[in-house]
Design a protein around this nucleic acid. Structure first.
Lengths: 155, 155
DNA sequence: ATTAGTGGGTTCTATTTTGGAACCAACTAG
DNA sequence: CTAGTTGGTTCCAAAATAGAACCCACTAAT
């Protein structure tokens, strides 16, 4: 993973590194917050705008980017006048582990000033969950020591 | 998780939502790429700058932010002239699941145009890994159906 | 003893992105 | 016919980023 050329932000979407490609979609200040709202069931433009305090201009732009990336799907929920709502696609739902990992990290790395916070709990038992990554094939934990990145040359 | 007030970006670090607090540190275009370089063992300013193609100004700014957040530690590796390098702290290493989840998502949601890509493999066997999140307490998979967010009121 | 190079930055201006607010089109309800 | 709702767009000011040059304290080569 050594590159000959420095990266340009607008070419990140076609970079060989998946981190760069991923960030070309979700690597900005607002996008994951929009995705969070979607996981919470928020679907309407105005509701997102109000909850996030994002400007309407930027929200419209992010929703379009997420739609183009196949993360959200715009659906007409009412004709006359025609109204749209945004829903996570399968690809969008696949962002769940990213969101969960971020929440877990932030909860102990960037503690809130007051006790007030949001934590993840089991829907069935209500007890806190403690997310860890394992390899589905072997069941072994995934850590910097157990895995490494490998470049697969194409073309 | 409904807020009375819209969020201001510069107050994100003290938001009750961990997604917002997490993004206040790593939620910009470059930060996770800098963290990626650190996981690859890159420690020097000039080397990062060359590999990423980030401007020196922005790199200096991100490194300072990451240091302030306790993700990186600046260490003198040579006196006369004094020279610094950046290393991941424990808090920085704790970002590994976020990075792994992002890579996993991007590899099938944002495929590279050519076959060339970077994938994660087991360090011991060299076979591809398939990361999934489970709850360390119960061993059950974590999905949008099995967990939910709970607000814990403080103060 | 000069000259070139290195490492870790800072400073400068030009371009791009974001914020904040107003506006708009197409309808509905009163 | 007036006000309200929804999903935006348009405008201008403020902030962040890019791109390039410069700087300082050294070291190594001529």
């Amino acid at each position: 993973m050594v590159y000959d050329e420095p990266m340009k932000w607008n070419e990140l979407g076609t970079d060989p590194c998946p981190v760069a490609r991923g960030l070309s979609v979700i690597g900005d200040r607002w996008t994951m917050l929009v995705v969070r709202e979607c996981f919470f069931g928020i679907r309407r433009f105005d509701q997102m705008q109000e909850r996030l305090g994002i400007t309407r201009h930027v929200l419209a732009d992010r929703l379009r980017t997420l739609e183009d990336a196949g993360v959200l799907r715009r659906e007409v929920y009412q004709e006359r006048p025609v109204r749209y709502e945004y829903r996570l696609t399968e690809r969008g739902k696949a962002l769940h582990p990213v969101l969960v990992s971020l929440i877990t990290w932030a909860n102990d790395a960037v503690p809130p000033p007051e006790q007030s916070s949001v934590t993840l709990v089991s829907r069935s038992t209500g007890t806190p969950v403690d997310p860890v990554l394992i390899d589905a094939n072997t069941g072994t934990p995934i850590t910097p020591h157990t895995i490494t990145a490998q470049r697969n040359e194409g073309a």
